[in-house]
Nucleic acid binder design. Structure first.
Lengths: 390, 390
DNA sequence: TCCTTTTTGATGGAAACCTCATTATGTACG
DNA sequence: CGTACATAATGAGGTTTCCATCAAAAAGGA
């Protein structure tokens, strides 16, 4: 909580920001009287603030709403289309890029396919193509982007360096920031993909507004991410949610239960899980047993996190969350004996878009911090530039 | 980050708070020129603000510092003695009460002894006596307290109710808030004792300024508490750090290693640990083995938290931290094989005072939030009253 | 004694806010 | 169709707060 104060212009700036925030959060046009109520300012001052913001292009006037007593009031809306951010998901099998407006609404996206073996340069190239496709679809250029955030597999430290990654052979140490900086002048953030998925679920998804949650990435490479006190939790070096590395949790071997199930016999390892979940859905006893054994192991590591953090909600995400209908009940039952209070378990709903949307949320958060800080001027809406290193 | 804005008086209020904070954080008298630099205000405005604050009693003028070029500057200090808060630690064997000034410096304290079997009413009475002793020692009355925070064993929920406690038979459900409210008109906060110890270590102790830390309570009743993103973490229902409840951590039985050690033969269970640690210190092989076995078990649950949270520091607190000299190395070694990155492990230094000081910190935080919020007026410094329930 | 350095105090001016009275522009109703 | 009512916009006058600037004051050193 930074108390700043300042001069009269700073006060006006704060009041302008207050108005913008009110308009943005209301998600509908507001009248001057409503704005005055929201901000606590007098009517006259709100008029000043609003005409100023309108001249600068932050807000726009809309038709007065018909049918009401008294003289119809002017109404204003936040111009969410004044700027855009870019979210990127660099996955193992695909790269997604999505452009959203300042409200976080997706306006365009691009996609390219890669494989686990794709070498670094080609993966970066795939990222470039996905970005370009999204930009073209949105009809925007790269210097119109206000911010970018990219999600990647692996451990991402505070400087955005990927320090550890198992799934991709030559991906660790990739200078993602540098690579993006060459093509985009705006601020850049890199984060772990599960953390972004968790953020998306907490902002837009099944855990909207939840203060404390554990996001479980259930899939071929299990993982977890945390939202604590309402904010994404990064830890000291970014290596959070790695409880599955402990032998006693069984996370390293739990997919064996699925892959060695008769229902998956002969199929390639990456299809095994889906086949077993499908068989379990139709009642196959061996498949059900395999799912239960998997859930038992998953519950061990989950219980360790739940007992440590006492979250309100556990979000079940990752590829296996598509099979939440057969996985949820066994997981809940396996969790119960370990926990003091069993948190609500909700299957993820955002699906494949989860990480890109989370990335866009993070980029929006970043520019929010910039604009709402004392230094971040409330200039006419233009794409912020990265501060040039001194 | 709440953007508030407001009218001109609010601006003045913000600037006043900014000045108060600068004076408080500097921990030394500042000149008007220094204050102007800190707050970014012009000199003339600072004069206004300062004379205003001085009239209201928030700051005081001190002797100009001699020996310097030019005309000697007036200097002002924050009047930390303008108000006081009360911290209480309701332990199993003792009740502590400490009164600190607005800088968190202890000015007086009181102490009473209790035993695990002491029934609720007598324990509350012991608390009253400790409080009264502290008040008398400080020469203050209960209505001069600006805030109280009490730490208790057991799980404390958001409303301050003790929902679960193992160590004290009839303590769960105690209406601590109600009890304190009958004797103190100021805001009241209740929190779990380990969480307060962690807070104290992060504010005043061995982990000052650390953003993410795990506080290990190593003692006869093991536990843990978390500071995450620089703030105490409470969880949804307050039951955090309970990873020791899982069988696989071995936390429920790990003290058996110490109690069954020959070095502790014949001694009562509560002295066993100290004897074993003492024997280990002199090189007794059986005692060393017992300590190592204990450390192995302690490391399991700790590793689960470290892998989940990736903290910068683990603080070793609780009764056994007095024996950190023999416990630290085995714990560090036992932790290493499980962790991606072994956090720094630091033994607690605040000792018995830990919880009371943490309680005082929490009470200070609470009034900070009150005064620095738009509503909390910057009236002349007087004890805030609890809002009367409507 | 004079000069340099730094703080202090005073004045004028501008920005931003508030209040209150007046005017404008709709709907409702006789 | 005209009047009453309700709400919104506008404008005048006043207050608070801040800034910039400049002369005066208070020390130490030459």
């Amino acid at each position: 909580m930074h108390v700043s104060g300042g001069d009269l212009q700073r006060l006006r700036q704060l009041n302008s920001l207050s108005s913008i925030r009110a308009l943005r959060d209301a998600r509908r046009p507001l009248t001057l009287t409503e704005l005055a109520a929201h901000t606590g300012l007098s009517r006259g001052s709100i008029v000043d603030v609003v005409t100023d913001l309108q001249e600068r292009g932050w807000i726009a006037e809309v038709e007065p709403s018909p049918g009401g007593m008294g003289r119809p009031a002017r109404r204003y809306r936040f111009r969410a289309d004044a700027g855009h951010v870019l979210g990127i998901d660099i996955g193992v099998h695909k790269v997604l890029a999505t452009i959203t407006d300042l409200n976080g609404r997706a306006v365009a996206s691009g996609r390219t396919s890669v494989s686990p073996g794709t070498p670094r340069e080609q993966r970066l190239d795939a990222m470039n193509r996905a970005m370009d496709a999204a930009l073209i679809a949105a009809g925007l250029t790269s210097d119109q982007m206000w911010g970018v955030a990219a999600g990647s597999v692996g451990v991402v430290d505070r400087e955005g360096v990927i320090t550890r990654v198992e799934a991709l052979p030559d991906w660790a140490g990739t200078d993602l920031v540098g690579h993006l900086a060459a093509r985009l002048p705006c601020p850049i953030t890199i984060e772990n993909d599960s953390k972004l998925a968790a953020l998306a679920e907490q902002r837009l998804g099944v855990a909207a507004g939840v203060r404390d949650l554990v996001y479980l990435h259930a899939g071929r490479r299990p993982g977890a991410a945390l939202i604590l006190n309402g904010r994404p939790y990064h830890g000291f070096s970014g290596a959070t949610g790695e409880v599955g590395l402990m032998e006693i949790t069984g996370w390293r071997t739990m997919t064996d239960h699925l892959e060695s199930c008769p229902a998956a016999a002969g199929a390639p390892a990456e299809d095994a899980a889906a086949l077993v979940f499908g068989a379990a859905r139709t009642g196959d006893p061996a498949a059900r047993a395999a799912v239960e054994a998997y859930a038992q192991d998953l519950a061990l590591g989950t219980a360790a996190m739940v007992l440590t953090l006492d979250p309100e909600v556990v979000v079940l995400g990752g590829g296996f969350s598509r099979s939440a209908d057969v996985l949820l009940a066994p997981l809940r039952e396996a969790l119960a004996p370990h926990c003091l209070r069993v948190p609500e378990i909700r299957p993820s709903t955002l699906g494949e878009e989860c990480v890109v949307l989370g990335a866009a949320c993070l980029a929006l958060d970043h520019i929010d911090h910039m604009f709402f800080s004392p230094e971040g001027a409330l200039s006419p809406p233009t794409a912020p530039q990265r501060p040039t290193p001194a």
